[in-house]
Amino acid sequence: MSVALDAALGVAAVGGMLAVGSLALAFADEAAAAAVAGAPLRPRRLLVAPFRRAASALLTATTTTERPDGGGRALAPALLAGLAALAMSMLPLAPGVVPADPSTGFVVFSAAVAFVMIAVFLHGWSPNSTLPLHGAYRFGAVALSFQIPFLLAMLATALPAQSLSLVRIVEAQAPLWNVIREPLGLPIYLIVGLAVGLWGPLNLPDADDLAGGTSAEDSGLARWLWEAARTSMLVAVAALGSAAFLGGYLGPLLPGPVWVALKTALLLAVMAVARHALARARIERFVEVAWVLLVPLALLNVFVSGAFLL
């Protein structure tokens, strides 16, 4: 009985964190857009906008395409949402407070990011339509390139912790946050995080030059779910990034969860600004930069931060 209760509590907590994070991201995004566009910000209207959008999605039918891969089409947004929840469930909120703490939490998170490739590819492949198909293959190029820099940037945080548990990684930052110990890690992590959340300058599979890419054929609830799953993934990436690089719940005066929220919000704000202030990368340019620049830099980051530990 208590197992079921725990699971229900876990789902509620993770879902709540993702929802609040998504609202915060929507707000930050709108604020950044207004700042760049030179338009006034209307906070009151803004706060209800996500709920209005969800309600209109509920009332709009979900269309199908000609002979789609129905299973894949239903699975893709669900899988992405599940992966976001999986990642978020390992976020340490305070000393001893964490929805789940597998001893290899760090690898679990990496596996979740790797499965994002599957979710996005399936999403673009399944409608049997040209533009989504191109989006799916684009993400293949993006994802196979960002995978290794991402894993390496995260790996450097495991060195001082001597463990693959996210809880231990946060604890090990008590003397010094990882963002200072390994300064290259957070920028690389954030660059890749944008690609994982199909966001802003790295929104290649769902880009405007594909008229929406993998989501060009989505409507109604399926479309809303895909958008919600994408933002949830971004929130999870920001939250775990704040745990891995910014010391998570560590901080003076305020209680742990507040620090987690503040640091996550900071990273979300950075991502929101990046979306409006940075241009989208050409796919080929990104692939080359990821392999030739980010991989060596991420390795350098691992070895330099290792050298300081010796």
Partner: peptide
């Protein structure tokens, strides 16, 4: 710990 899997 199967927690994350259950939640996901």
């Amino acid at each position: 710990d199967l927690g994350p899997l259950a939640i996901a």
